[in-house]
Every structure is written in C-alpha cells, then in structure tokens.
Design a protein around this nucleic acid. Structure first.
Length: 506
RNA sequence: GGUCUGUUCGUCUAGGGGUUAGGACACCAGAUUUUCAUUCUGGUAACACGGGUUCGAUUCCCGUACAGACUACCA
C-alpha cells in the first residue's frame, strides 16, 4: 500500500476555526495510525486576504492541541517550501502544459464584462450562469480572439488562465465517506487557474502541490465536494490520475441552534469560544477568547472534536489521543453534519479535570489564581473543589471564600436560616473554638456538636446558618474541611463578623 | 434558480429486512450528602413524509419535503 501522507492546508486569513482543528485532527489520526506523515502547508495564494500573525497562530494552536507536524512550514522537509506564495514560480509550467494540450486558455475579460455575462445569462433564464462551455465563445479569450490579438494581450500582462472543461462527460469522484459522486461536466465552469497577479488559484495550487508532495489522502471539509470533480479533471489533464490522492470530504460542523455552518457569530451569540487560542484581530483589535483561555483542556477538546462526526462503534467515550489514533477509521466517519454542542464539550472537560492529578491542579492554582497560599493548602483546596469544577478556574473562583472572608452573605439563606437558635449555637461554637489551639475537620465537627448540645439545639438546624457565616454562600463543599483549611483564627474572625453584622429577621 | 450532499431521541450517535431501536450529553425523579455539586438508581424522549420491493421495512429502491454546502481572478 501507498505510504500515508496527509496534509492540513489552511490559509492564513485569520484565526484557525475549530472546524479546521477537527480537519487537522482527522488527518493527524490517519497519519499516526499508519506511520504516515502529517504535512502542514500554508495556502496563501490570495495576497489580499493575508493576515499577519495568522500562520503563527495556526502553528501555536496545533501545538496546543497536541498535533505534531512532521513536514511543512516551521519544520521544513523534502518538499520545501511549504508556503504556496513561495512556490509561485512552480505553478506556471503546469498551467502552460494545460494550455499546450488545449485544456486551458487565456482569458482577458474585465470584472465588468464578467458581471455583464452573468446578468445576461440570468436574465435569459439560464440555470447555468457560468464562464464555461455555454458562454466561453462569447467572451474575450484566446479561443475567440485572433492569435495576434491574443499575443498582444498576453504581452500586456493582464490575463488569466482558465481550464477548458470538456463537454458531455460524467466526472466521478470516489469519496471515501460518500461513495461515488458523479457530476456532469456541463455543471463545471471554466475555473480560473492562474490569476492576473501570477498566483495560482486554490484549485491549481492544491492539485499541483498534492501531487508534488505525494499526498495519499485529501481529507478536507465538505465545502470542497462541489469542486472535487474539477480537481479530478486537473489530475487527468496533468497526467497524474493514477497517483491521485483518495478523497474524504468531512461533514460540516453546524451551529448549535437552527442550521448552517458553525460561525464565529453563532458562537459569540451562544457565548462559547470558536478558536483554540485567544485571537486578537490585527485589523479591528477585536479579541476573541479561545478554548484554552476559557479553561478547556486540550485533551478534552480533542476527545470532543473527534466524536463530532466520528465514533468508534463501541460505548467508550473517553479517548486519549493515542487511543484515538488506534481506534480511528475513515469508514466510521458520518455523512451528516454535526451540531456543535458546547454542553458535551463541557462534560468532557469535567471528566478530564477529574482525571487530572491534584498536584497538577494545585500548581496551576498557585500560578493562575493570584492567591498566595502554601502548596499544602492548595492541595486541600483542590481536593474539595475539584469534583464540582468544569474548568480549572472554577476551583479558585467558586472557592474564593477559601482565600478571603465573604463581603456579602447570601440573602435568601440569611433570611431563612439566620435566627436566634443559629446565633446561640454559633456564639457557643465560637467560644469553644477560642479554647483550642488548632482545628481539623474532625475536631471542628465534634466541637460544633458539643456546642450545639450545650444549648439544646440540633446541629442540622443551624448548619446552613454556619455555612453562610463562614463562606457567605448557601452551598459549597464540606464545611468542616472548609474550616480546617481556613484555620481556627480565621473561622472565629468570620463568625464574629457574621454575628455582629447579620440581623435576625423579626 | 442550478448542481452536489445529507435526514435515527432536544443534541452527539449505535444499529440494521423480523430488536423491548442501544449508549452518551442535556432534562426529570429518587437515593446518598450538613447544603450544593459529585456518585448511584430509575425515567421521559427518535427511525422526516409518501409510494414501491417483500410474508415483513426504520433498514433496500423511487419520489417528496426539509436542511446544508457550492455556484469569485477566496480558500
């Protein structure tokens, strides 16, 4: 079998969309599974859309999720350069071959003329408003102009090279996911292959580079399916059909509500990220928060993404990257688009947080929370907050009361539970605490029980009041351990403050 | 409009000519817990529609509907 060589080929026009990450992932899984090669190629043939920093962003994003590039931009390789703009000179000869063989031609139409052609065809009720076999003979090109005129126009430099699509052919694409897709050549237009700035278009560049780089599988989004027959035609005309890569067009990632391709706009509306890392648009200065900065773990994101459009056929849900590499197969990729369900992503994240060792989370807390506590305390905080966290920052944000005394108290709890009995027990408890030098969860509890017993009140009746006094909240982790972490003196201070501040409802 | 692709619980999906149509997320209920969360148990919930083929179709075929993608000198 042919060596597996796959490529991820984004264009540096902005941040990498999460759908692009999934495409890269599937390519990567196939490569790793087959001891193949993962190639990163930058498709920057549109100079007008180039965004500074985008390429670096793509590199950083792939690195963050754990996709390693074997060959390509930033690492080099036998087929360098991997940036299409740097391969510019290379494409011309192939366009020339196409022309020499009569499979392509020069065209000189202006934008206005193209618009006029489309308007005319539309007005005539023509289904097909393309620059193609039905219209090319009415246009300004080397097929309709005399050799002299053509030569003159070519010398003036303002020309484009278009593919001459043959009439009356059924063009077939064998897609690994969808099976045989057949398109009548009359539906394919005479796509521009070389632009007037001398750059190839995606269609030419992608075919030439995939051939030159000996790509075995083209795994890309479904939006490319309609132009796949055109690419097949190109392979054929260039004489490369037997080395043509296999195609797999991935189902799209859809918006969570309604329909349509997942977009940044939709993500913004629903309040979730769409880019792996935070991205600052250099043109507008607008900042879009990334999955990383939102607290998603790369392993969780990958696991979630892998399952959007693919599944192993077993009931296992949690997969490490290595497990995904082993389990992956193109045959099990779905055909239908998948709605992006951020709740499922959060569930995966929660599972991965749970599986993260406490000391890892504790050092993260020390580094990111802005709180200064000992490692020992950090570990205790992690152990009680971890299971209620979806994101790492939940540990210190939801556990803020572990670092500083509450400024406000939950009103609904206070009005319901802060009563004379509570004050009585808490006062007795406070006194009992003053009599000891230190507390842990066990002693805090027995002290509380005896304090409550001394005033003949059940502990259960005042637990909520005690919690709100200590933490300001009506809910939270185990109170006794909370008090152990806080320490005796701090607990007494907080109880004092609560007793002096909170009013018993009449 | 045209071309292409698709359609199993709200969502991600398994399955496949005869199944109680399975799992996960979400949701609801119960248990546990000092509260909330976790955990556990249980529950609600799906084969888009219409024809065929067949003893039998959710599964195969054909239509219809709906949805999406594409329809640039963008990728």
């Amino acid at each position: 079998m042919r060596d597996v060589r796959v490529r991820f080929a984004p264009s540096p026009t902005g941040a990498l969309h999460i759908g692009g990450v999934r495409t890269a992932l599937y390519n990567y899984l196939l490569a790793r599974q087959n001891n193949g090669t993962m190639i990163l190629r930058i498709e920057d043939t549109d100079q007008g859309r180039f965004v500074p920093g985008a390429e670096e962003y793509i590199l950083n994003s792939l690195a963050w999720v754990g996709i390693k590039i074997d060959e390509g931009v930033s690492v080099g390789g036998p087929h360098a350069p991997y940036r299409q703009s740097e391969r510019k000179a290379l494409y011309k000869q192939y366009a020339q071959k196409l022309i020499d063989d009569g499979n392509a031609y020069y065209a000189f139409d202006t934008e206005a003329e193209l618009d006029a052609m489309r308007d005319k065809l539309k007005a005539a009720g023509n289904d097909n408003q393309q620059y193609g076999m039905h219209s090319r003979m009415q246009m300004k090109n080397s097929l309709t102009l005399s050799a002299d005129e053509t030569k003159k126009l070519i010398e003036s430099g303002a020309y484009v090279i278009r593919l001459k699509v043959p009439a009356g052919e059924q063009i077939q694409v064998n897609d690994l996911i969808r099976g045989l897709v057949t398109v009548d050549s009359s539906q394919i237009d005479d796509k521009v292959l070389m632009k007037s700035d001398g750059m190839p278009t995606y269609h030419l560049a992608n075919v030439v580079d995939d051939y030159l780089m000996n790509i075995s599988h083209v795994i890309r989004g479904e939006e490319w399916l309609p132009s796949a027959p055109l690419h097949v035609l190109l392979y054929r005309f260039l004489g490369w059909e037997k080395n043509m890569p296999q195609f797999a067009h991935l189902p799209l990632l859809l918006k969570p509500d309604g329909n349509g391709k997942l977009s940044k706009r939709a993500a913004d509306q629903m309040g979730f990220p769409i880019f792996p890392l935070t991205w600052k648009d250099p043109a507008t200065g607008e900042v879009a928060k990334g999955f990383k900065e939102s607290g998603y773990l790369p392993e969780a994101l990958i696991n979630f993404l892998a399952f959007l459009g693919w599944n192993p056929g077993t009931e296992q849900e949690i997969f490490s990257l290595n497990e995904l590499i082993n389990a992956f197969s193109i045959e099990r990729i779905n055909k239908a688009g998948a709605k992006f369900d951020i709740q499922k992503a959060q569930w995966f994240n929660q599972q991965y947080i749970k599986a993260t060792p406490n000391d890892v989370l504790a050092s993260q807390l020390l580094k990111e929370s802005g709180q200064s506590v000992s490692m020992e305390t950090a570990l205790k905080i992690v152990s009680i907050m971890k299971e209620r966290a979806t994101f790492p920052q939940d540990i210190w944000e939801q556990g803020a009361f572990l670092f500083s005394a509450p400024q406000v108290f939950d009103d609904s709890v206070v009005s319901k539970k802060w009563n004379d009995e509570a004050v009585k027990v808490i006062t007795a408890y406070k006194n009992a605490l003053s009599g000891v030098t230190t507390i842990d969860a066990t002693s805090a509890k027995s002290l509380l029980e005896s304090a409550a017993a001394s005033v003949n009140i059940g502990v259960g009746k005042i637990m909520q009041a005690l919690r709100v006094a200590v933490t300001g909240n009506g809910s939270g982790p185990d109170l006794m351990i909370t008090m152990e972490i806080l320490g005796k003196d701090e607990v007494i201070r907080r109880l004092d403050y609560a007793v002096n501040t909170l009013k018993v409802k009449a």
